[in-house]
Design a protein around this nucleic acid. Sequence first.
DNA 1: AATTGTGAACCTCTTCACAGCT
DNA 2: AGCTGTGAAGAGGTTCACAATT
Lengths: 221, 221
Amino acid sequence: MVVSPNGNKISDATVRRLSKYYRSLKYAYDRGMRTISSQELADMNTLTAAQVRKDLSFFGAFGRRGLGYYVADLQRNIARILGINKTWNVALVGAGNIGRALIDYDQFRQQGFLMKVVLDNDPDKIGKVYHGIEVRDFANVEEEVKKGKIKIAIVAVPAQFAQGVVDRLVECKVRAFLNFAPITVQVPDGVFVRNENMAIELEALSFALTNRREPRRTLGE
Amino acid sequence: MVVSPNGNKISDATVRRLSKYYRSLKYAYDRGMRTISSQELADMNTLTAAQVRKDLSFFGAFGRRGLGYYVADLQRNIARILGINKTWNVALVGAGNIGRALIDYDQFRQQGFLMKVVLDNDPDKIGKVYHGIEVRDFANVEEEVKKGKIKIAIVAVPAQFAQGVVDRLVECKVRAFLNFAPITVQVPDGVFVRNENMAIELEALSFALTNRREPRRTLGE
DNA sequence: AATTGTGAACCTCTTCACAGCT
DNA sequence: AGCTGTGAAGAGGTTCACAATT
């Protein structure tokens, strides 16, 4: 469990909401808002005002009673908390359909995640240039990670290769992974993995559509 | 909140884990396993055995004491629970980088999610064929949804258009959305939205890397 | 008057522990 | 003997409600 500078344990859910607040603040600032209340932030994300205040309170007291939060100030604070007040060099492993789409993904670049290295082991792909980046041989991963100052890797390879790729990258001192393969990869302590499993989300929708009706209230119905 | 046939309230977390069990069962079956214990299912997903049994117990008693679960049988049961024991016709709105990558996404097709319709409003894209599917004009959405028997839509358009696209699709009776735009879309009761926000996952990794050290124990340190 | 920050209450989800079944 | 199914306990996350502040 990750811990805030104030010593509070921070849940995943709180971290995800901080990201949302950050986007809402950007949006508000662009619209000319200079202060914002917890209620307004909540409305923008279908949450409660208490939730917003509680989330922020784990990291400090950023608001002004009677007034709300200064938009630019809170945005800066959240950027610092999330560690996105600087850029991160990212490597992509796997230049398939999904991987190639991510090379040039605006939302990554806008938040300071820079795709510096693209690796694959397919001879047909190595040497090809996608969105201005040349695919390099995964065999040279150690050198590429070092040269590229890579801190985060995106793994977009077929399921059967994902664990091996992650293991190799852990050896190369990469400590954070965004995994698109539909398996649970095992990693040692101190290594972070987030899974991006788009089929699971569709299955959750399938479940919701399939089970949406209320259960029977009485046996006779 | 979605409710199981037995009348239990089912959390999102449980639904996501069911998807994982389903994949694990496929994997186990392919490896020749015919029965599996809750402990084995747990190990494959870094969970506890009690969690696995509790999740399944919301829907019925599928196991045999002393033996475990029959792999094929449990797989069939979970497929039925998730509603993936049949195919779902899906529409994609937005044929940008990410959208195009999803047209031909194996993991969708394998679980029975068939991309039947691709829509955009960009004249340069309408008429183009990607992975064998022709991009149609979003202006004809009503007809396309009807003809395609679309039940689920994937929204991969820029943030400022996402709400409008969803509103229009709701009018066309689409009740489930996978949203890739980095905003919270508002929908009426009975409509389901799952958000796929890949930048948020990277931000969670950034947060973990930034805050991984334990807090100071004493002031003097 | 408005809005934050937060302890306490509440609710939900996870884990425990063991009876019950094969 | 082994493993499930589940009520109860425990842990964790959310909401309430109000004192504190501007």
